[in-house]
Design a protein around this nucleic acid. Structure first.
Lengths: 266, 266
DNA sequence: CGACACCTTGAAGAGGTTCAAGAAATGTGG
DNA sequence: CCACATTTCTTGAACCTCTTCAAGGTGTCG
């Protein structure tokens, strides 16, 4: 059934190096050129394509630090001064905003190759929080440097714009979900989205390990954790997915997809 | 700027010129230099501050066209090729996405000085729709030109980034609203946000004219139009606002504000 | 092993939706 | 300018989905 050894079931971070490196900030210098962007297998996710050698060398100067973020600790939080964007190298994050009364709204889940911190540009300080849901590692990309490079390399500039626009489009989709879908439709959309993104990273199309709690899923989807739990049970009962705690196997993605394209009867 | 004489109850577009100009695309040339960005009273909303003369001249080359958009007609729609951003000069828009089953989710309402079209950058084609809720006029800013200028003028570059980031932050706020607030709290947040933005444009802090239907408000807030209507009636009954069709006067903004900071009892 | 976080499930309850009817405003064409 | 059709808004009543409250179960980590 679920085989943790296989890549097919793995999560982007399942092969996270568990080095016993004590520092969690790793300067990047000429000695370990190997971990430059130009050699990174996530480059196609973080950086523009079709660069020449010279431009690649420039790109390598964007990331000047890496930072390990232990499971459960904050990458940044509301009010922090904004200086850098963060490209996730390894791991999994949630980002969330908090209302004055303390309610926590998850605004997204981010995985390897995705960028965190875009919220900070507007006011030079972060307006949301990002927390690692498993031991993670991010590349720090000082925003000043990104802007400099964008001025020199048009494809870099376009890339930055696309990343931001993509986030706007993603949030439009969430608004549609929150504004019009029922509980089970929301969960179906959520699972399909997650598994698509994992698949784009080389993982299974049908199996995934949830890195977040039912409560966090609920917050993201505008539901209570009990409702999420019930929806999972319903899916399992109907044979749409197999649910074993946080291990999910999608059996009928076709039917899940139908749920979200044709809400209910109609 | 906006005629202060009718400021108090006016809407940004209440003094929209109703010229009988037959063409609705207006080329900009040296003959009507008066309507260049550098002379536009909305410049501080669309464009960066602190530019020198030379930079201002460059900025004036961004907007190469204006376009009138009649009430009820589309500025762009899902699938249209993306070429330009649109700065609203006069009027009021809604943007919305549509799901496969035809459900329409309003993703935002935009007024003079705000920018439309950011969704198109991600995939070079628009993923949402924008429709004028009253006779409007927009400035076309070809995105290639914006990128060129961003490379030359760092403050322009930063400005573009801030506009996009602001949109991301705004959408985070909507997610919080949709994910955790009750009907009346949502409407309170909506009204306060609208009146704040109008106030920033020189209008009243307490009076506004809604340009959209109850159904459109409901779509934006994830509610049915009946619920919106009932919430308005409740507010009126409780003396928080005066409601006369689409004319709204806010009587107790303090109490409205309380509603959204301390959802319910606590 | 015990404390704690997480998950599941049931039952009661609330908030919002749906359905329905009527009133008021808006627009259209003669 | 009026008559008529259409859109928009309000309000009531029944219904339904999700939430709330509660209890028990399972897994994890010190």
């Amino acid at each position: 059934m679920f085989d943790p050894a296989q890549k097919s079931f793995a999560n982007p971070a399942s092969n996270a190096p568990s080095t016993s490196h004590s520092a969690n900030v790793i300067p990047i210098n000429s000695h370990n050129i190997k971990i430059a962007c130009s050699n990174c297998n996530l480059r196609e996710l973080c950086m523009p394509l079709g660069l020449n050698r010279e431009e690649l060398d420039q790109i390598d100067t964007v990331v000047n630090m890496r930072r390990k973020v232990k499971k459960g600790s904050l990458l940044f939080h509301n009010g922090d001064k904004f200086t850098s964007l963060y490209a996730i190298r390894i791991g999994f994050f949630k980002s969330f905003v908090a209302s004055e009364d303390g309610h926590e709204q998850v605004t997204g889940f981010q995985m390897a190759g995705e960028v965190l911190g875009l919220d900070g540009i507007a006011s030079d300080s972060h307006t949301c929080n990002a927390i690692a849901l498993e031991d993670s590692e991010v590349c720090l990309m000082p925003f000043d440097r990104i802007e400099e490079l964008s001025r020199d390399i048009p494809s870099m500039q376009r890339h930055v714009h696309k990343i931001m626009s993509r986030e706007i489009v993603r949030e439009n989709g969430i608004m549609l979900l929150l504004g019009s879908m029922r509980a089970e439709e929301r969960l179906a959309a959520f699972l399909l989205n997650l598994v698509d993104r994992l698949h784009a990273r080389g993982f299974s199309q049908s199996e995934l390990v949830l890195r977040m709690t039912r409560e966090e899923i609920g917050s993201y989807l505008g539901l209570k954790l009990e409702t999420v739990s019930r929806a999972f049970s319903k899916f399992a009962e109907d044979g749409l997915v197999e649910v074993d705690k946080r291990n999910i196997r999608i059996l009928r993605s076709d039917l899940l997809r139908e749920m979200i394209s044709r809400p209910e009867c109609d």
